[in-house]
Design a protein around this nucleic acid. Structure first.
Lengths: 340, 340
DNA sequence: TAAACCTACGAAAACGGTTTCGTGTTAACA
DNA sequence: TGTTAACACGAAACCGTTTTCGTAGGTTTA
């Protein structure tokens, strides 16, 4: 990297002090018009740019926000990241992005790196492994250090910090209700293990809808996917039962279910209706297009970053954790068009 | 944010100098065993963490890599970013991610922000607007400042820096050849405007395959999508001609083409074969699954970041720009199964 | 016993800025 | 003519850390 021009070199070259240069560059009234002009002209000529590191050290703030996601090759998370970046940029912040890859260890390490002063605050969606083994000490440490933290989507209730979540119960309810109103009675649920709380919440919504509609729930119709094993065969097992609809808690499961249904010779939506979660490209472009819950990732990202920056810039003494719930919409597509 | 403990506070508290503390914390032989122990114990107790900003200022390096992408909600780019993050992490770097959203203006601004010392080097895939208006001064400025730069996928030949690209011509050739070997003769090409060089290169491969196979190319079968207008209707227009196959330069176009084909009552692959680019989720989960070119985004990301870090850490005086070409594979799926 | 040499630590500069608080010069005012 | 105020600028501290160099005191060596 070429040696950059600094305030010091300008000062030396022009025979003035660094303070004068600094003031001249920010158009201070303290500096005479002529001197100001000389300095500004020189700075312009040599393309002077203030060194961010020096400013950060002086101001004790980085204007950078750390973001830790479980994964990125995923429609929902990439949408959220867009929202975060957009919101951050609007307020003069940049984002540092890291991935936990669903690993507890990596999450702990990453959090440690980010909390050494590289960022002003951190936004996290928790790794599934962390949710499973319930070791949250890295987060409570962070809170103890009073580093601004916002959790989104996959949150930890025990941690006292701002949170942004979707209305998972309501969304599960909405999707299931839609299937029921569609005339479906034997609705399978393809979900995650219980420790992934969003999966558990969506299941609650599913059950609530069944109960309200006087439909007996049947555990045989609920399959909790273990991602370490073959996913397709686990989904296939649900077709051994008598079902007329499937609600999957993400779009991959929904798409896989649809493939299996088709290869079983079933017509969608006639023989079986399918609804998913995460309104991504798969749902939109598959045929038939899949009815899904739109999670509004962009909105979530924006809300999360707004919350965080608010926390960073107004160090309110009395901490009252906020919880924002984003309502989700059902996007009805061909995969659940009425069967009658 | 809570007041963090610094070397100064430790020094004051323990009645020694900051230099002693600094040395003790890195186990220097200069410091007596007893003193060392006292200091280390104290640091541990109060959970001392060195301030990264101060270190960065002192060392004149940030261990951060800037990444500018045209978009993120896109399978290829999100895969690349994973590769970059992984490679960067392995060598102790973090990544700062920004998006140009295909806008020239935002790209210029972002580049300016990142080049003020916040990062040690930058990886960019160029915004389409920049490629269109051909204003590359922001990149040449960067090169003049000797800030390490790596361009990938959408690159600018005029800029002297390391580059990582896929073999677009070869890939276009492979895909088209596959269709031809499949017995197709009237192959439509759905591509981008010429200024997006990857689109242009893929078209070259397409034409090469046609020529080698003695198939007369027909401009009517080539549609260059203007993304500011309705995409589907532009794609639909190609069906007015007599075609038996479609090669699309990305998976969205391929998926849209498939939808239109289906709604036109065509059977895939019997009546029409479809091949795409970008081996993402859509291609994998659509039905029939779409034959695509896999771009190996993960590999690209890793290569790009390795190249950049090499450049950062070995400031070789004699600059010789490298160009890495990643070969891409054809993933054959149902959408092009033989028609005979 | 003086010279030479460790040992264990501190002072100070450096990284690149900002900012507070002087201070010398000149002009205005009484 | 003496006092005061405005103007234009500089000195120095500060942010947190590292590192070079110096040095006081004790120990070894000739």
């Amino acid at each position: 990297m070429k040696q950059k021009i600094t305030i010091k070199t300008i000062a030396k070259e022009l025979g003035v002090s660094t303070s004068t240069v600094s003031k001249a560059l920010k158009d201070s009234h303290e500096i005479g018009a002529e001197t100001k002009e000389r300095i500004q002209a020189y700075a312009n000529l040599y393309n002077y740019k203030p060194n961010h590191l020096a400013l950060q050290l002086r101001n004790q703030k980085t204007k950078v926000i750390g973001v830790i996601l479980p994964k990125i090759v995923h429609h929902f998370f990439s949408t959220v990241i867009m929202g975060i970046e957009e919101g951050a940029n609007k307020k003069g912040y940049n984002i540092m992005v890291c991935f936990s890859n669903e690993s507890h260890k990596k999450e702990v390490e990453t959090l440690k790196v980010l909390s050494n002063g590289s960022v002003d605050g951190i936004i996290v969606s928790v790794a599934s492994e962390t949710l499973e083994n319930k070791d949250f000490t890295h987060f409570s440490d962070l809170v103890n250090e009073e580093i601004p933290l916002v959790l989104f989507d996959r949150v930890i209730n025990e941690i006292l910090c701002d949170k942004v979540v979707v209305d998972d119960v309501g969304a599960g309810y909405k999707a299931t209700m839609h299937l029921i109103e569609n005339g479906r009675k034997r609705i399978a649920l393809i979900t995650t293990p219980d420790h992934v709380n969003v999966g558990a919440l969506r299941k609650q919504g599913y059950e609530k809808a069944l109960i309200e509609s006087y439909i007996k729930s049947d555990d045989a119709l609920v399959v909790k996917i273990d991602e370490t094993k073959d996913i397709s065969s686990q989904i296939a097992s649900v077709f051994e039962h008598n079902i007329d609809a499937i609600f999957a808690v993400n779009e991959i499961y929904a798409a896989k279910a649809m493939k299996i249904a088709k290869s079983n010779g079933l017509n969608i939506p006639k023989d079986i209706a399918i609804a998913g979660f995460t309104d991504g490209l798969i749902s939109e472009y598959s045929s038939p297009a899949i009815t899904t819950i739109a999670q509004h990732g962009l909105t979530m990202g924006r809300q999360a970053v707004d919350l965080l920056i608010e926390r960073i810039e107004n160090e309110s003494a009395d901490f009252k954790a906020k919880r924002i719930v984003i309502s989700s919409d059902l996007k009805v597509r061909e995969s659940t068009k009425t069967s009658s």
